[in-house]
Amino acid sequence: MNALLRAYAQAWSQAGVPKLAALIGTIEAPDGLLSPEDQVPASLKQDYDQAVEALTVFPKLKQQLSRIGDRLPWMQGAMRMPASFQGRFAYVELAGPTGMIAISDIRFGLYLQQHDTVYPSHWHEAVEDYLIASGTALWQVDDAGFNAQPPGTHIKHASNQPHATTTLQDPLLAMWFWQGDIRNSTYRVVGVDA
């Protein structure tokens, strides 16, 4: 697990975000966090395998995800989502209040979105950084149009800034980082009552 954290930090550094890389680099994982079996939801297994295979911009991250990524606790979350998005994404909170590594003031992890999927506009109090690992996704911030964001792209969302993501033929695998007010209770999605 610590090799995955080092590869994760190195990817942020490579993308030109040294402050996040340095912060992540200080975190150590205790032993015994990995499941002995595959934890990727069955409906997303093919997309997960395709996304890891396509991961070329961060080779050390690919190496670690190929080795242990499917044994991380991938989940689809308890937050309400539109029916069109349910079951089409999964995430891992590597560190945070409910993460594999308990940390109270930040959250970070991995995000997988199935191919041909719209993640509708949503927002939250947390300041959010995304780093695309594999798959070119269409990204919208505020009310601007959707723009293609290829692997290696760093995207930052301000607190309560609406954003949406659409995948086409390729699944999206991204790294995410929350800071500031990281409570999940501040998360809202267009078309879903609070």
Rank of each mutant, 00 (worst) to 15 (best):
G25D: 06
S104W: 10
T166N: 09
D38T: 15
S159N: 07
Q169P: 00
L138K: 13
L44M: 09
Y111T: 14
P41H: 07
A144C: 02
D70I: 12
L5T: 05
Q39F: 08
V40Q: 05
R67Y: 05
D143P: 00
Q63N: 00
A3C: 00
A21P: 05
H124F: 07
Q169W: 12
E37S: 15
V189P: 03
S13P: 00
K60A: 04
Y91F: 15
N184L: 13
L20V: 11
Y48E: 08
I182L: 07
S66Q: 12
V40D: 05
D49E: 15
A194M: 12
A83Q: 14
P171F: 04
G77M: 06
F85W: 06
N2L: 06
A194I: 12
I103P: 01
L172A: 05
F89G: 11
Q14F: 00
V40Y: 05
W12K: 01
A11T: 01
Q113S: 12
V190H: 08
D70W: 13
T186E: 04
L34G: 02
H122A: 00
E37V: 15
L55P: 01
S159C: 03
G145N: 07
H124I: 06
P36Y: 11
R188T: 13
G191L: 04
G109W: 04
V190E: 12
D49A: 15
G96Y: 07
T136Q: 02
V192G: 03
M79G: 10
M1T: 10
V57L: 03
W139Q: 05
A15R: 02
G16K: 06
W74C: 03
M1F: 09
H124T: 05
E93W: 10
S84W: 08
A158H: 12
Q64F: 01
V189F: 12
S43D: 15
L23S: 12
A133E: 03
G191F: 03
A137H: 04
Q86P: 07
A51G: 02
P162A: 06
V141G: 09
A7T: 03
